[in-house]
Amino acid sequence: MPRDALQGTLDLLVLQTLARGTQHGYGITCHILAASGQQLRVEEGSLYPALRRMESAGLIKAEWKQSENNRRARYYQLTKKGAGRLAQEMQKWEQHTAAVKSFLEFA
């Protein structure tokens, strides 16, 4: 997936992933890849700065924890504010896709 097209929806993907539970950066890429049927590949260069940005904005918070294979990893968790933002983003996305869909059907 090209990086540009992903840009607008990256936050949505990450927030939705974290809504299922805490996860580290690598886990987030894996989940997005798996859940999208190998369609959406998030690039590390986009993901990590985005995580930092969302952390600064208070949408998520981070914590160092032991990973499944006993290494230290930075786990991200959705905050209350992040949950709110997720709902917003989802609604926006649905409106957007619905609009595009109805346009395509009409034309």
Binding site: G45, Y48, P49, A50, R52, R53, E55, S56
Partner: peptide, 8 residues
């Protein structure tokens, strides 16, 4: 660099 800039 980008990560650092994005941090609070």
């Amino acid at each position: 660099e980008q990560m650092r800039d994005a941090s609070t």
